[in-house]
């Protein structure tokens, strides 16, 4: 049940594990999508986002764990309530736009006439009405992706699962996508979408699920996630040992951070909450460390993400 105890949770994933022969996959994924919410599924490339979504959609068999859809174990029938935009985008190039959408809608159970009416309505909605008879292969990449997204929502699913829906979309198309999200929510639907774009997630989501190396490291409201962001700065300097000593001196810690600046290592320096980051600058100046880069850590989702991912790494 959902937080209100009355509505079944659209999606609950518990202790999900899936390992591929190559070694990637997921180890311990736990989260729930609340009714009427937009949930961001966040992780770096290879963290296990797509694997998790494939398991949810039945495209691959998990090794362990449970998946519930609207309070019932995930089966082919319960998955019919879901709309899915896979990571691998593609439609038959010879299909006409309205045929492609209506075909997916019919597969999900709509009658032929209803499916075509729905397809035409959706194409009008995103400004592709005049091109409804165009073949998918004749559409621009962005428009083809819009058609693909319309295929996912053609049967008006109660839960929409989208794998990286914003990749490849221009700002106008992104804005349209957001308004489609809003309309879906207004009808009482829920959305789960994966992304590695923190700003998008921060802007659109009520909830976020952050995963790192195949494990859930955070699940909750965006504001709570942002509060997890540490206090400190990303620093690059000429003397790594000197920087570590400065961090120690201030009661904090310096951790290597992905991405070098030239030959120099990039460090994430975490400070106690009572130490402002200018104090770090001063201490580095006193030690005469040549600062090549200095960027305060923002108290936002991105900061929280890196912090949580680093904690997982350390664990």
């Amino acid at each position: 049940m959902s937080d209100d105890g009355r509505t079944p949770v659209p999606l609950r994933v518990s202790r999900l594990a899936k390992q591929y022969a190559g070694g990637c996959g997921v180890k311990a994924i736990d989260f729930a999508v609340q009714p009427g919410s937009v949930t961001g599924f966040i992780g770096v490339n290879g963290a296990g986002k797509s694997t998790t979504l494939k398991c949810v959609m039945g495209l691959t068999e998990p090794d362990a764990g449970e998946i519930e859809i609207f309070g019932e174990p995930a089966t082919f029938e319960t998955r019919q309530k879901l709309g899915f935009l896979p990571e691998e985008r593609g439609l038959a190039p010879r299909d006409r736009a309205r045929d492609a959408i209506a075909f997916q809608a019919q597969l999900k159970g709509l009658e032929r006439a209803d499916a075509y009416a729905r397809a035409d309505g959706l194409l009008e909605r995103v400004g592709l009405g005049p091109r409804r008879y165009a073949r998918v292969g004749e559409l621009s990449k962005g428009n083809a992706q819009r058609v693909q997204i319309l295929c996912a929502i053609a049967h008006d699913p109660q839960l929409l699962i989208l794998d990286e829906p914003f990749s490849g979309l221009d700002p106008v198309a992104q804005a349209e996508m957001q308004s489609l999200f809003d309309e879906h929510r207004a009808r009482g639907g829920s959305i789960l979408f994966s992304t590695h774009g923190m700003s998008v997630a921060e802007r659109l989501c009520d909830q976020v699920v952050i995963i790192s190396r195949g494990c859930t490291v955070f699940e909750g409201p965006v504001a709570d996630a942002a509060a997890q962001a540490p206090h400190g700065a990303y620093v690059t300097c000429s003397d790594d040992a000197g920087l570590i000593a400065v961090a120690d001196q201030l009661g904090g810690a310096a951790q290597p951070f992905p991405g070098k600046m030239g030959q120099a290592m990039r460090w994430r320096v975490l400070l106690p909450s009572h130490v402002p980051y200018p104090a770090l600058l001063r201490a580095m100046g006193e030690r005469q460390l040549a600062i090549q880069g200095f960027e305060p850590i923002q108290a936002d989702l991105e900061g929280a993400f890196w912090s949580l991912a680093a904690e997982r790494e350390a664990a």
Partner: peptide, 17 residues
């Protein structure tokens, strides 16, 4: 092969067995 090369297989398999 067309479904694979068009990258449409996952989309189809989310709707049909």
């Amino acid at each position: 092969v067309r479904e694979r090369s068009n990258r449409a297989l996952e989309s189809l398999l989310s709707s049909v067995r």
